[in-house]
Amino acid sequence: MYRTWAIARAVVADAIRRRIVWVVALFSLVLAAAIPSLPSYGVGVEGAVYREIALALIYVAMIVLALVLSVTRIPGEVERRTVYPVLARDVSRWQYVVGTWLGIALTLLAAAVAFGLIVFGVGWVVYDAPMFQLWQGVLAIWMEAAVVAAFCVAVSTMTLPAVVAVAALAFLFIAHVRADLLGGPGHPLWYAYPSLDAFNIIAPVAHGSGVDALYLGVMTLVFLGWAGALLVLGSAAFSRKDL
């Protein structure tokens, strides 16, 4: 675990110095802060609209960041040979894959917390009430972004960055159309279909009081299952790769 953590720390140190990360983060933060200046809505729903737009904005920013950080990470390290001094030591391939993802996930977590603080602070100041349920939405978005990063890391051990990016977008689309395709939980394929719907809690967070603790627990299990399965797949593929 020590070596996995060491790789994760190096990934974080590298990622937070990338200019593109700061550009995406600053652009999103400015937009989040500007949400209250949008045209006013009906009395009583401003808060809900604010939360919905804020979470949608954070979602887009987090997915972009996840793609930026993970699509080229491993292919780039292999191409530039930066991976050689790492794997020529007491480091297994799976430790490298998991450490890389962990570093990306931690960077995404830092970005999610920053986004969360801004929208929570702005919401509190403008609407004069703390919107604690926003943090549930931020958590769910971070989990989905981290799953997308795990997908990119896993697939990038096998193919080129451009293919990874396209595959990641296809993965996002496929994993969010279960209800449209299968019509609902009654369909036989419903539970076998790969879905990220568990992380979509924007509606209860924006228009209600959020989700309960049980749902958060299940969501966490889904997150661990997705990330774990993808990282096992990526580690297996990377362990067979000649560098």
Binding site: A10, A13, D14, T82, P85, A88, R89, D90, S92
Partner: peptide
Amino acid sequence: GPAVRARLGFLPEQPYFSPLL
């Protein structure tokens, strides 16, 4: 294997490291 490689140092040809570190 990985364990004994802790006692080994390696310089690859044309080494490259993250320029941000």
